[in-house]
Simulated assay, not measured.
Amino acid sequence: MTQSTTSHTPTITLVTGGSRGLGRNTALSIAKGGGDVILTYRSQAAEAQAVVAEIEALGRRAVALQLDTGDITTFASFGHNLGALLQETWQRDRFDHLVNNAGHGDYAAFATTSEAQFDHLVNVHFKGVFFLTQALLPLIVDGGRIVNFSTGLTRLSLPGYSAYAAAKGAVEVLTRYLAKELGARGITVNTVAPGAIETDFGGGVVRDNPELNQHLAHMTALGRVGLPDDIGPMVAGLLAPANRWVTAQRIEVSGGQAL
């Protein structure tokens, strides 16, 4: 069967939601390790192009494509455009790694969560991951990698995130099933579950609320909340050849939060 690209040939990784936050950091970490990157963005075209420029400054190739991961109807055309891009830019018909990172936070108590909020969270964080991965399977090399982002909130409960955490819990179950079903192709599938991180996620609440920041720091073994640089390099490492035997795992990257 077709194997993933060898060490002297740069890998190609598709990172959804790569224009900001953990997606941006992951894309840059992959580039620093010698990989090429295709990143998607929903509406932040300028920010996405800035990431492309940063990656190119590192000597790697990068392209940004628009994609709303909550709009399943666009996935077939996205896959077609991606295939054409691979041929035009890399003279290849497949890519190596898929990182399903794109997402958003929506704080609401269970009793007041609306159907619209629920549907948006599920469409982006679960249904979108399911059907985008399905649509892109023919373009992923045998021996490739899939990483799905989850959250520390699937292990501990923080009121106000029931719908978000439930959608991520579904992704964790899906990850195990994908690992089983895609194992025959040599594709590994894992979940990375960040703890509290200082980004603009959820309106930047962890970063910008000093009281919450300190509360979370005090309940973390390493004594602080996380930074994007704590997550992106870990994901890049998981994609490296040395981790070829890791699959179907939920890897929490939280500094020991709520032990």
Rank of each mutant, 00 (worst) to 15 (best):
T2H: 10
T2M: 11
T11M: 08
L14V: 15
V15E: 10
G18Y: 06
G18L: 01
S19F: 06
G21E: 01
A27H: 07
A27T: 13
A27D: 02
L28M: 13
L28P: 02
I30V: 09
G33P: 03
V37T: 09
L39I: 14
T40M: 09
S43M: 08
E47H: 03
Q49L: 02
Q49P: 03
V51A: 09
V51D: 05
V52N: 08
G59A: 10
R60M: 12
R60V: 10
Q66C: 14
L67N: 11
L67T: 13
L67P: 04
D68W: 10
D68A: 12
T73H: 10
T74A: 13
T74P: 00
G79H: 10
L82C: 07
L82R: 01
G83N: 03
G83S: 05
L85F: 03
Q87Y: 05
Q87N: 12
R92D: 02
D93M: 09
R94E: 00
F95Y: 11
F95Q: 12
D96N: 15
D106H: 12
A108L: 06
E115M: 15
F118L: 14
D119T: 13
L121T: 15
L121Q: 15
H125Q: 09
F126I: 04
F126Y: 15
K127D: 09
K127I: 12
F130H: 06
F130V: 05
F130S: 00
F131H: 02
L132N: 00
T133G: 03
Q134Y: 07
A135C: 11
G144E: 00
V147Q: 03
N148T: 11
F149V: 13
S150H: 07
L153Q: 14
L158W: 13
P159R: 11
S162Q: 12
Y164Q: 09
A165F: 09
K168Q: 08
G169S: 12
V173H: 05
T175H: 01
T175R: 01
L178W: 04
L182R: 01
L182T: 05
G183D: 02
G186I: 00
I187V: 15
T188I: 05
N190D: 07
T191H: 01
T191Y: 03
V192P: 06
G195P: 10
A196E: 00
A196W: 12
E198S: 12
D200W: 01
G202S: 03
G203N: 06
G203E: 07
V206T: 02
V206Q: 01
R207T: 04
N209G: 08
N213V: 03
Q214M: 05
L216K: 08
A217K: 12
H218G: 10
M219T: 14
M219D: 00
T220Q: 00
L222M: 15
L222H: 08
R224Y: 04
G226N: 12
L227A: 15
L227Y: 11
P228D: 13
I231A: 06
G232E: 05
P233H: 09
M234D: 02
M234G: 02
V235Y: 06
A236Q: 14
A236C: 09
W245G: 00
W245E: 03
V246T: 10
R250F: 02
R250A: 07
R250S: 14
I251Q: 05
I251P: 04
E252F: 11
V253P: 08
G256T: 06
L259F: 10
